[in-house]
Amino acid sequence: MRNLLALNWKMNKTPSEARSWAAELGERYEEGNAELAVMAPFVTISTLAANLPAGVGLGAQDVSAHESGAYTGETSAAMLADVGVQYVVVGHSERRDYHGETDNVVAAKAKLVQANGLLPIVCVGEKLDVREKGQQVAYTLAQLHGSLEGVGSDVVIAYEPVWAIGTGKTATADDAEELAVAIRSALEERYGKKSSEIRVLYGGSVKPDNIASICAKPNINGALVGGASLKVADVLGMNDALKDA
């Protein structure tokens, strides 16, 4: 299964900066090592759709839980599909923490994403206090179960230990694999044979110097990358590191 690097820009880059980033990537990128996809702010999506090099996917960082209607400030899955989006991140820890998104909301968003022919990247993962109590597996699987209620198997799962996001701390490859194994078992129970086609990503301070060891684990199929996604040099470094993964 080909590794996916889902590049989550978060609230960074204006449309003009995105255009420059895409141009630089286009000059230097060689397709083949990993699949790249940029998870962009809404206002940069159209710019990237017109400027990303061939073979690089396009994603959004969030979506409305409603199909359409009087929801000021919201963006629907149908709108995202119409501008060329392929992936949509749902349930990122920052959405859960800062906007109070529950597992039910995440599942509702994922279902609408799928209904519009897009692929949801469903995020799950524990905070530091949960890990310190040794409850990371039970907590993450409960979150996974709730976030996939009614959701089909056309999905990507991103395990993101919250304590490792933007902190400079990184779960070890063994830490990540422990949760990936548990997630895979839960996916197999839910989806049967179709679960073998689901990619499980790791997210949390991923960089060129640690991505190879993480993705070398048999149950991890790429990464949800934050800070290291903002510089083309770092993206290319991660792509190169996965040549033999």
Score class of each variant (00 low, 15 high):
residue 2 R to H: 09
residue 3 N to T: 13
residue 6 A to I: 10
residue 7 L to M: 13
residue 13 K to H: 13
residue 17 E to T: 10
residue 23 A to D: 14
residue 26 G to N: 11
residue 34 A to I: 13
residue 36 L to P: 05
residue 38 V to M: 14
residue 49 A to H: 10
residue 49 A to G: 08
residue 51 N to W: 00
residue 52 L to V: 04
residue 53 P to A: 11
residue 55 G to D: 05
residue 58 L to Y: 06
residue 63 V to Q: 01
residue 63 V to Y: 01
residue 67 E to L: 10
residue 68 S to K: 04
residue 70 A to G: 00
residue 70 A to D: 04
residue 73 G to W: 13
residue 80 L to I: 08
residue 82 D to C: 02
residue 91 G to V: 04
residue 91 G to I: 02
residue 92 H to A: 09
residue 96 R to W: 02
residue 98 Y to F: 15
residue 98 Y to E: 14
residue 101 E to K: 08
residue 102 T to S: 15
residue 104 N to L: 05
residue 112 L to P: 01
residue 114 Q to N: 06
residue 124 V to L: 00
residue 130 V to P: 05
residue 130 V to F: 09
residue 132 E to A: 09
residue 135 Q to T: 04
residue 137 V to F: 03
residue 138 A to F: 03
residue 142 A to C: 01
residue 143 Q to R: 12
residue 147 S to Y: 01
residue 151 V to E: 05
residue 163 W to E: 11
residue 168 G to T: 08
residue 169 K to N: 14
residue 172 T to A: 00
residue 172 T to H: 03
residue 174 D to V: 14
residue 176 A to R: 08
residue 178 E to C: 10
residue 182 A to M: 10
residue 187 L to Q: 12
residue 188 E to Q: 12
residue 188 E to P: 01
residue 196 S to C: 00
residue 199 R to Q: 13
residue 201 L to R: 13
residue 202 Y to R: 13
residue 204 G to I: 05
residue 217 K to G: 01
residue 223 A to T: 07
residue 225 V to N: 09
residue 228 A to H: 09
residue 238 M to C: 06
residue 241 A to F: 00
residue 243 K to P: 00
